[in-house]
Design a protein around this nucleic acid. Structure first.
Length: 307
DNA sequence: CTTGCAATAT
DNA sequence: CATATTGCAA
């Protein structure tokens, strides 16, 4: 007889949620006004920069290409905000944020951490893209973004579990490069073991999760450079050591150092600890960068998380 | 309609 | 190569 779910806790859960005005968990605009201006990025509604209010998940449509007040940094033509190419003529974003392709989301460890945390706390049962996305409260994140990553995440977990037990030990080579890369991301964050079903099993009210970071949000105008200087976690994909592509000839896959030059191309085996050289302005880093070649990459990483 | 997952594309 | 996108089945 009881195979019912308990939508009650869930319903209340939302009600108990702190009001955005009271407590803004972790949603920041992808770009701060300052940053946007600094990049000459057209902001259609700079004044509407507000938090996303996701209330009734049912009716609330959350499918805006960009946050309500989100600054669309993507220009359809070639207005390169920064990096290479800038210059151009400032072809304003004559396009409203709609139907525009967003830059690839770069899952930074921090961002991924939020993802994992959300999944862990939601429980497999409720860990569906929509819910996760909402819980993450990361502005700009779309359902597709989460769904895509979720797929990978699940596969990763499966592979881990399935591979752990088979004693025999003859598995030599099941790990392809793809898996290895994934692991760098996934293995570097705490994998909640008890990734079991939760949420619908009679449990009245869980002591709210506070895995979220406190609302310490403050953006500084000069954060731009600081942000760029911060993103320093190891590069994934250093399988090819002899790749002579540094800054002169190739496509920089997903990384970017803009405004400041650092690290040599040859021996980049640096694992930078965020705490060892935390930038003066460590609040939020959003960095939109285009991989040289026209490949824009959106990197939003909520800092302030501990490891 | 949302989700899950394979295949495919960029 | 990491994501995004698409197609199709529950």
């Amino acid at each position: 007889m009881r195979e019912e779910e308990e939508p009650n806790w869930f319903a209340r859960w939302e009600e108990e949620l702190p009001s955005p005005e009271e407590l803004m968990p972790l949603s920041q605009s992808l770009i701060t006004p300052d940053l946007a201006l600094a990049f000459d990025i057209p902001s259609p509604n700079p004044s509407q920069l507000h938090v996303l209010h996701h209330h009734s998940a049912a009716t609330a449509n959350k499918n805006p290409p960009l946050a309500p007040g989100g600054v669309d940094f993507d220009s359809p033509d070639l207005s390169s905000p920064v990096g290479a190419g800038s210059g151009g003529g400032g072809s304003a974003g004559d396009d409203s944020a709609r139907t525009l392709k967003r830059p690839r989301l770069v899952w930074t460890p921090q961002l991924h951490k939020r993802f994992v945390d959300a999944v862990a706390h939601l429980g497999i049962k409720n860990a569906v893209p929509k819910t996760i996305m909402q819980l993450m409260s990361v502005e700009g994140l779309t359902r597709e973004n989460v769904a895509s990553h979720l797929q990978k995440y699940r596969l990763y977990l499966k592979r881990m579990q399935g591979l752990s037990s088979s004693g025999a030990g003859g598995q030599t080579g099941p790990m392809s490069a793809a898996d290895a890369a994934t692991e760098q991301l996934f293995a570097s964050n705490p994998i909640p073991h008890p990734l079991l079903v939760r949420g619908a099993s009679g449990h009245g009210q869980e002591p709210f999760m506070q895995f979220m970071t406190p609302p310490s949000m403050q953006h500084h105008p000069q954060m731009a450079v600081a942000a760029a200087a911060q993103q320093q976690y190891y590069h994934r994909q250093m399988g090819h050591f002899g790749s002579p592509m540094a800054a002169g000839g190739g496509y920089n896959q997903g990384f970017h150092i803009r405004g400041a030059q650092r690290m040599g191309a040859s021996g980049m085996g640096m694992v930078h600890s965020p705490a060892s050289a935390a930038p003066p302005t460590s609040s939020y880093g959003e960095d939109i960068d285009l991989g040289l070649g026209g490949r824009r990459v959106l990197t939003l990483f909520p800092t302030s998380s501990e490891d």
